[in-house]
Amino acid sequence: MSDGDGEFIDVRELTKTFTVRRKTGLLRRTATQVHAVDGISFALRRGEMVGFIGPNGAGKSTTIKMLTGILTPTDGSLRVAGVDPWQERTRLVRRIGVVFGQRTTLWWDLPLRDSYGLVRRMYRIPRARFEENLARCVELLELGDLLDVPVRQLSLGQRMRGDITAALLHDPDVLYLDEPTIGLDVVSKARVRRFLVALNAELGTTVLLTTHDLSDIEHLCKRVVVIDHGRLVYDGLLSGLHEVGRGERTLVVDLERELPPIEGIPGARTVRTEGPRQWLAFPASASAAPLVSQLAADYPLVDLSLREPAIEDVIARMYAG
């Protein structure tokens, strides 16, 4: 059973169908099939850090639950580190770490230190290894003063850092992060991101990151997998999203005086005017140079600036399409 090279996480035609019973009359109930995940395939190499995104209800959590072995797939095949998650859940969980932004794996009434002691026993982590991992997390996540504070007294950002530490003490090969920065302030977000980058670079931990905060993805992942309605809509480089999502760049043009909307520039259209200022949209894949020279020739230009498409808009357009 090799998992050192090749695909570390291998998902093929993964499908999960739920039967939902609804009341349709006084006593009658109709069963409908809901395809939460509908034939998704993708693969992760060891050490990759991939963003897994999609709107609410797209099937992200269902996919993660199957990847971690707490849900059985209806159809398709699934291997994580060479193991079928559902068949060998207790073996697999020793090799994965899971962090939920909206749940905690810590014990509310206990200090962080005690929670970590329990984690050490659960995963049978050798003492030296445990101390080393804990020391690294404590240093990088700045947890030193918090170890003896009961979890219920921690702030959200502190608790999140505590949770990330708990998920890493047993040296997992794969880390699933579900909304790890939700509700965090800018400083805490930056700290968590820096830590994840270091973790991935130094230990080669494979990371699958689910988030609605696309700036997380921009900071952390080169590659994104996008799903919608249980289907894969994109798998590739983050930079390639713009083309698939028909991203548009915007040229903001300041003219000498107020004029009717600019016309006759091939490939561009005026989307907004405000006094002497006009906004022109054109495909992200096209070059701005010919546009600018033609504008300068035809119109009294004072100034111009170029705006890149926001990734949020690109993805919103993908979902809509």
Partner: peptide, 12 residues
């Protein structure tokens, strides 16, 4: 509330 998922992620 679904927190039981966390219990199921533990090797116990």
């Amino acid at each position: 509330n679904g927190d039981v998922a966390i219990d199921l992620y533990r090797p116990v």
